[in-house]
């Protein structure tokens, strides 16, 4: 549905995006992750045809974002990060206006706008001026205008910023419901949001793609540490583990955590190393009480990816 091929974007001397490529399939909800100022918004602006790339090609729904921009724009609903709305209009006037501009017929507009307002929980503010409503409501108006014409592709730049927990839940449900019929790209800083919503993740850092993968793969890829609880003289075990040349690092489990009284071990090469480790433990007459791969969460993976790229 969306293809980004070797895209580079320069702002004068500054290279904001450096040769990134990824694809998003129809029906995916793709999370777009990265630290601040790494070019997430830039990529989204290129996808929405706000400006063209310096080099490379972006395709949305089979149309080139630069050459057939009008066709692309018909397929897209976009929520910019700043949520720019016309403050002097009422919520329902604004949504009517957007629906009209997106080419909906006058007959369809009324029903569709009403439905979108219900979906986004805007029914009780529909007669209010946009300048008078709260940040959370503005955010929802922004989402409503992106959704109003049922676009195939939704591009949401930090959709849940500024919402209270209940609203966040509502919006996440809304986005989740869109999966399948719509293709969604959303950028966010909130990592749990990605694990809740997205089935694919693109991590970018300093204008480059640090990882593209499904969420499960990404998290399991981070699992190169294991946890062991071994009976015996802890000091000696620690020393023996550290002496093995196949262990990259050995840490004692932190107090008051699930890992208290055990060891967190990072291995160089899983199969080879674990064999040698087992042999070593048997030689010394210790026995393994508990052994499992360490659970990594998305946060660890994210920080790992971002700091690795940064070095």
């Amino acid at each position: 549905m969306i293809q980004v091929e070797h895209v580079t974007k320069d702002y004068g001397q500054f290279r904001a995006i450096d040769d990134i490529s990824f694809t998003v399939n129809k029906g995916d909800i793709m999370g777009f992750l990265g630290p601040n100022g790494t070019g997430k918004t830039t990529v989204m602006r290129m996808l929405t045809c706000f400006f063209p790339p310096t080099q490379g090609k972006l395709m949305v729904a089979g149309y080139n974002c630069f050459e057939e921009s009008l066709n692309v724009r018909k397929k897209i609903g976009y929520l910019p990060e700043r949520v720019p709305l016309y403050a002097d209009m009422t919520v329902s006037d604004y949504l009517d206006f957007v629906a009209g501009i997106k080419g909906m017929r006058s007959k369809e507009i009324k029903g569709k706008v009403g439905q979108v307002m219900d979906d986004c929980g805007l029914a009780d503010v529909n007669r209010k001026l946009i300048s008078d409503i709260s940040r959370g409501y503005r955010q929802r108006v922004g989402i409503a205008q992106a959704l109003v014409n049922d676009p195939e592709v939704l591009i949401l730049d930090e959709p849940t910023v500024g919402l209270d927990p209940q609203q966040i839940k509502g919006i996440r449900k809304l986005i989740k419901d869109l999966a399948g019929r719509h293709t969604v790209i959303l950028s966010t800083h909130i990592l749990p949001e990605v694990s809740i919503l997205c089935n694919r993740v693109v991590v970018i850092n300093k204008g480059r793609v640090a990882a593209v993968d499904s969420l499960d793969n990404l998290i399991s890829a981070g699992t190169d540490k294991m946890f062991m609880r071994i009976n015996g003289d802890q000091q000696a075990i620690m020393a023996a583990l550290e002496q093995l040349d196949c262990t990259a690092s050995v840490q004692q489990g932190e107090n008051d955590s699930k890992e208290e009284g055990g060891f967190i071990i990072a291995l160089d090469d899983e199969k080879q190393s674990s064999k040698r480790m087992h042999a070593m433990i048997e030689e010394n007459g210790w026995n393994i009480e508990e052994m499992r791969p360490m659970e990594t969460n998305l946060e660890d993976v994210f920080i790992q990816l971002v700091t690795k790229e940064g070095k």
Binding site: C49, F50, L70, Y78, R82, P84, I101, K102, G103
Partner: peptide, 14 residues
């Protein structure tokens, strides 16, 4: 100034 131009220019309109 308000940034509404970003939405305006990404609407399907010449």
């Amino acid at each position: 100034k308000t940034g509404t131009i970003e939405l305006m220019l990404t609407f399907p309109i010449n």
